[in-house]
Amino acid sequence: MAVNTVLRTVKQAVWLGWKVDTNWADPLVFAIYYMVRPLAGLLMAGFMFYVGSTVVDVFSGEHFAFLLIGNSFFIYIVQIVMSMSMLIHDDRAHYEVLKHIYLSPSSLTWYILGRALNGVVNASLSLLLTLGFGVLIFQGILGLPIPINWLGIDLPMLALTMLLGTLCFVSLGYVLSGINIMTSRVQFMLSEYVSSILYLFGGVIFTPELLPSWGQTISNALPVTYFLKSVRFSILHQTGGDFQTSLMLLSLTTLVTVGISVGVFRFAMHKARKDGLIDKKEEY
């Protein structure tokens, strides 16, 4: 496919995704909507930490910063994966446009990439707002000491981590899209299922060392673990791990995820064409 066609497809898909996501509300309401849910998730985890610390009468600022960064960046992951997972249902069964996109000269793969990039933009916006308001509430209003030097963030390291992480989570989104193309039975809950597993084993709000050995093995196989480690290293400069090793393992697990996503998505498209699933409308 010509590069121009690919670029145009991606651009139009980003634009379409943005319109679908935002045109039900004015920009302020949209921004509030995109902030409130993740912020509430962060506040819930933060208050659990606060309550637990109050009960034992020991507050560890380092641990709190660990949780704050982990939970905020996990929301970024969830939003990308969730937007891609729901896309197939929305376009196939709800708006009934998937068949038209499939018939067009562009490719469904690039269209999904465009929609995913829109999800990345929204997730980034949400991440910044959540992190900003989270710090404002916990540090500014509740007066909790959060040892983060915002001016000392290693931006190149963070940018590299985000780039690799985004590639990895978009790939994961393709896997979920592929599954949802093949079956409608789990379309509403699939991303929730995946995110709940990643939340437990990815070292989001507690250190994976607390898990039993089999849990740690799962944790060590997940890109989320290395993504969050690298993000924490860039922001908190925590010495719990070596950044280079973490980044290398993130690259490796990302590569594996990309490989799996290519395989699953190609198989899904082949099966969809063979079994007539492209326009199969099911109400699950």
Partner: peptide, 27 residues
């Protein structure tokens, strides 16, 4: 599969919260 997923998958998120409390050393 819905029934199985709905029954057991919430345990993953709940486990994460329990581990958080364990990390803090609460009862």
């Amino acid at each position: 599969e819905w029934l199985i997923f709905d029954m057991f998958l919430p345990i993953f998120t709940l486990s994460a919260y329990v581990y958080l409390y364990k990390m803090l050393g609460v009862g």
